[in-house]
Computed example of a mutant assay.
Amino acid sequence: MAIELVTGKKGTVHVDSADDGALYAAIAGKGEYVLDLDDRLACTMTTANKAHVASGHGLMQGRHWLIDAEGVDLTIQNGTQGQKRNDLIVARYECDAKNGNIESVALKVIKGTPTTGTPADPACTRGDILEGAALVNEQPLWRIPLNGITVGTPIQMFDVLTPAKEAWDSVAQAVVKAAKVVLDNFRTSSTVVVTVPVAWPVDVSRVVAVVPSYVCQEYSDRIVVSDWGADGVDVRAGVDQNVSMTLHVLYV
């Protein structure tokens, strides 16, 4: 079939997980994220051997999965005295190719390797779900560090996907603004960079660009603002002369 109306009534079952997955991946990105909903899969150690992952929603290469209000409890194996270890809590996607490509997801603990040095995270199985080439893919969620028999605080390993409204608001607030600063009658040099003091209209860390316009008092010359900072602007010129300059300061 060359073309198909996916979100349309056809009279037969024709929308599958690959259709939805492609749509979500195109909108949110092809990576793996946690959505800003519910408890955002918060993880706590309820006992020395039990991790609790709270409610939330994940996106795994376009596949939407969730944990309900009950949450999920997982067992962390005991540590080894005098050694360190990193375990990972992952969301494990599976596609059963021998049973009609039935798909499923579950949380799993991947046990790391104990060491007396710096522990490394255990490897996750990676696969390309969007291309239909993955029988297994594991999305890292939390690192559980163990130091001897002591279990540390879970460490987040996922990115929380910013809702589109919040992302748009943050962009709108970062609109570039402009101000003018006049530098009257300073002397340029043909041999050294001259730093001209500037009374910046905002904190200089907010300045994103400085565009100069200038009037040469004696000779025609090309004058360049090569850098700027708290002390002012660095000015390069080809001849020694007096110059008046207006800085068009762009800032956020």
Rank of each mutant, 00 (worst) to 15 (best):
V90M: 00
N137E: 12
A69K: 15
S170Q: 14
G62A: 11
L141T: 04
A133D: 15
P122T: 10
E138L: 04
A134Q: 09
P114G: 01
N185I: 08
V176Q: 15
V193K: 11
L135N: 14
A167D: 13
N185R: 13
T191P: 06
G82D: 08
N185Q: 12
G152K: 05
Q83K: 11
K165V: 09
W168I: 07
L59Q: 01
V136I: 15
F158D: 11
L146I: 05
E166H: 05
Q61N: 13
N185C: 10
G117V: 05
K98N: 15
D169V: 05
H64T: 10
T188W: 04
D73R: 00
I144K: 02
T188R: 04
A123K: 15
L146E: 03
P163L: 08
D169W: 03
G79I: 00
N86H: 10
V90D: 04
G112F: 06
T80W: 05
C95E: 15
V181E: 15
D121Y: 13
V151E: 00
Q139L: 13
T191N: 14
N137P: 12
T113K: 01
V151N: 04
G117L: 05
A134N: 09
R143W: 04
N147Q: 05
S170G: 07
V196N: 04
P154G: 03
L66E: 04
P122H: 02
L66D: 04
V72R: 05
Q139H: 12
G58C: 09
D184F: 06
T75D: 14
G79Q: 00
A164F: 14
G100A: 10
D121H: 10
N86L: 01
E131R: 15
T118S: 08
G62L: 11
G62T: 07
D73F: 09
A120N: 14
N99Y: 06
I67A: 03
W65S: 05
P145G: 10
N99M: 04
G71H: 10
G82N: 03
R85H: 02
V160F: 07
K108W: 04
W142K: 10
T191C: 05
A133Y: 13
C95N: 06
A172G: 01
T116Q: 11
T80G: 08
L130K: 01
R143C: 09
T150M: 02
G132V: 11
V72G: 04
N147D: 12
G152N: 02
E131N: 15
S170T: 08
V171I: 13
V171Y: 12
V196K: 03
D159W: 07
I76K: 06
N185Y: 11
P114D: 00
L107P: 07
I102D: 14
K111A: 02
T162G: 12
G152D: 01
D159C: 07
G117I: 09
V193H: 08
Q173G: 14
T116V: 03
E70I: 06
